[in-house]
């Protein structure tokens, strides 16, 4: 057994969309801050964007304001959400879209050089390589060290203070001890808690990344962090058997969503994300 010890100003746990973007912003703010990114897989293809994404679903289209987006999200959550967080997030949506475009993401544009949108809060992209774009941007930062294939299991605690984290290599018998001034938890959500749609060899053909196992939640829970609203589960509405997106059909080619009686159920029974699942 080998033990590796690292010290840094900032430890980022999880090299997904949030973790990598945070590293980019930190370097921009102060290139003297040294950052370690601890990633369970490889930042080039990890997290729920590993295979890419074909749209940015949170964007403020023309004629709308960040407040509109916050209002929409609060309504969709049937009132259970933090408006302060929603608003400060919404205010930056278009700004971060510009940054990822500058880094190399292809966003489709019309003949007037305007983003092609689906509805007022969604832009079409060619995002198969979105993780590669982010990974390349981070790789060029001198103050950021990337450690792939390390699974973080626990925060290091000093009273109620987080002073780093520990874990192990997913490949070799190496244990890691990271000490840091500040820690950013940026891991994924949790899949695989419930029996999935398919069994046997196909059981990992699911909507969400099967490698997102709730590690970030679990280490916080064990360390005594306060958690909110776990009861608001997410259930994805999908094409049966293939778990393919329904939004591409509904918004992309204008397919109507009907029940077995041929009724347009969204109009009849409500159109929030949870209601659409209830109606089928």
């Amino acid at each position: 057994m080998e033990i590796k010890k690292f010290f840094s100003d900032v430890l980022i746990i999880g090299g997904g969309a949030a973790g990598l973007f945070a590293a980019i912003r930190l370097s921009e703010l102060n290139p003297k801050i040294n950052v370690i990114i601890a990633e369970k897989a490889d930042i080039r293809r990890s997290g729920c964007l590993a295979a890419g994404v074909n749209a940015l679903n949170a964007y403020i289209g023309e004629g709308h304001t960040p407040k509109d987006y916050a209002d929409y999200a609060l309504k969709d959550a049937h009132g259970i959400a933090r408006y302060d967080l929603l608003l400060s997030m919404s205010e930056r949506l278009n700004h971060v879209t510009k940054i990822i475009e500058k880094l190399g993401l292809v966003i489709f544009k019309d003949e007037n050089d305007k983003y092609i949108t689906r509805g007022w809060r969604n832009v079409k992209i060619n995002g198969e390589n979105i993780k590669l774009i982010l990974a390349n941007a981070v790789k060029n930062l001198e103050n950021v060290k990337i450690i792939n294939h390390v699974n973080i299991t626990n925060f290091l605690l000093d009273d109620e203070k987080v002073v780093g984290a520990a874990g192990f290599s997913t490949r070799d018998k190496i244990y890691y001890n990271f000490t840091a001034k500040a820690t950013l938890i940026a891991t994924g959500g949790a899949s695989g808690i419930y029996l999935p749609n398919h069994s046997g060899g196909s059981r990992h053909q699911i909507w969400y990344s099967p490698f997102n196992t709730g590690a970030g939640y679990a280490m916080g829970i064990r360390a005594g962090a306060e958690m909110t609203t776990f009861e608001m589960r997410f259930i994805a509405l999908r094409c049966k058997d293939t778990i393919a997106p329904t939004g591409t059909l509904a918004q992309g080619v204008g397919a109507e969503q009907i029940n077995s009686k041929g009724e347009l159920f969204q109009e009849k029974y409500g159109n929030t994300t949870s209601e659409r699942v209830f109606e089928i």
């Binding site: 969309a17 949030a18 679903n57 933090r82 967080l85 400060s88 930056r92 940026a186 994924g188 005594g224």
Partner: peptide, 29 residues
């Protein structure tokens, strides 16, 4: 978070639904 010197962004950060990719970037910033 409620633990000192621990911050959260993206899928693990609560209270802020419908954030998707760009919302995660915004929180990370």
């Amino acid at each position: 978070t409620t633990l000192k010197n621990l911050f959260a962004a993206g899928d693990v950060a609560g209270g802020c639904p419908q954030k998707y990719v760009t919302g995660s970037f915004a929180e990370a910033e």
